[in-house]
Design a protein around this nucleic acid. Structure first.
Lengths: 208, 208
DNA sequence: GAACACTCTTGACACCCTGCCAACAAGCGG
DNA sequence: CCGCTTGTTGGCAGGGTGTCAAGAGTGTTC
């Protein structure tokens, strides 16, 4: 009993505390669906009073949205690489780059793109949309298209379609383990090649 | 004021009442995310006491799962049609059939395949998986494959990958309206053709 | 046609979760 | 060592969920 000066709790910088709570929330939301995670759970894991969560994030939902937003913001490392080479080489490289990225982030990313059963959530959808749009833009540029292309919006839409396939393929590979990396690579790069070389030119004639 | 015999409520057959509650729940879950729909909301729309929901479905969550399950169970009308013709003809027909079906169910189906932000739900995932698996089976058979094929599981996996693209494409068409039906048709049938003619044979050599 | 029984339906109770806010105390500056 | 700033706590009010005993339609019987 040297001194009676044992603080019941430690005082942190706002940013620090905020980040700590955020991290715990990200873990829990990655494990269970939204409704099955209580703010009490998050507070407990962070070793903090429940009220502090509201102090920093306002609402459970806002905290959740923040987690989703960050989970989907892809690292700015990006596709600055591989601008030239044959079409096949470029698609192969792009898919490879992507699969590498995914296999690192694995758990978080998988959880982030898991489809929900039913019930649309405007806010979440907008975040997902935005992320898809960015990713699609990168892919298009890597494939040699320009943002100035007057069909840019349609191109984005087509690639976003492709993004749906990419996500499903990732689940088959990492989650269900029904396809190995090489097989997923084949499927994705082949389809991407078809899209760029075959479908996109053809779609031009149908632009309503 | 003829007689004082005005019943406060009407007594229904269990199946009938169950179905009525179910329908109201399906509407609400289609409009808002799970957490934003209260059992009180459902009960109110059904004009029924809240407790009755638990009586028939046990739990809000169980009711939700029932709704998801039915929303994803595709009509048994199925692909009994079009077994022969060239590959291009078959893919075209299959995609057409599918787009017709989707454009009818529209709202419900769209809501059902909308991705959630983050947080995996075992139960829901299993239901979605099962539905995808069934759909993939139908597609494969329409493309001329047999359930006896010793690579059936892998084929299913590849088509389920494709299903991710189909869902994304449907959203672009019906929801975002960035692509018209004809464009979506082109993309989907072309990719399906590529998968069947090109990717699947190639994947054989990589079956680990 | 009145009493009866069957069971569908209600209403209230106990418990948990969320957001809010005033009071508290950790740690720095004087 | 004292006081001030402000990060942090703890409890309260409102609302949602699941349970259960009691109540009220409705067909049946005599």
């Amino acid at each position: 009993m040297t001194a009676g000066s044992a603080p019941k709790w430690r005082r942190l910088e706002p940013d620090e505390r905020r980040e700590q709570i955020f991290a715990c929330a990200a873990e829990l939301f990655g494990e269970r669906p939204y409704a099955a995670v209580s703010t009490a759970d998050i507070a407990a894991r962070a070793g903090v009073a429940r009220g502090l969560i509201n102090h920093y994030f306002g609402t459970k939902r806002e905290l959740y949205l923040a987690v989703v937003r960050r989970a989907l913001t892809l690292p700015p490392s990006a596709v600055t690489t591989l601008p030239d080479g044959s079409l096949a080489e470029r698609t192969d490289a792009a898919v490879d780059w992507f699969l590498d990225m995914v296999s690192k982030q694995q758990k978080t990313w998988l959880a982030a793109i898991t489809p929900e059963g039913i019930g649309r959530d405007e806010e979440v959808e907008r975040i997902l949309d935005e992320a898809d749009r960015d990713a699609a833009g990168l892919v298009l540029e890597a494939m040699g298209f320009s943002r100035d292309d007057d069909r840019w919006e349609q191109l984005i839409a087509v690639i976003r379609t492709y993004a749906g396939m990419v996500k499903a393929a990732s689940r088959e590979w990492l989650d269900r383990e029904t396809l190995n990396r090489s097989q997923v690579h084949t499927v994705l790069s082949q389809v991407l090649r078809t899209l760029v070389a075959d479908v996109i030119p053809r779609a031009r004639t149908q632009s309503s």
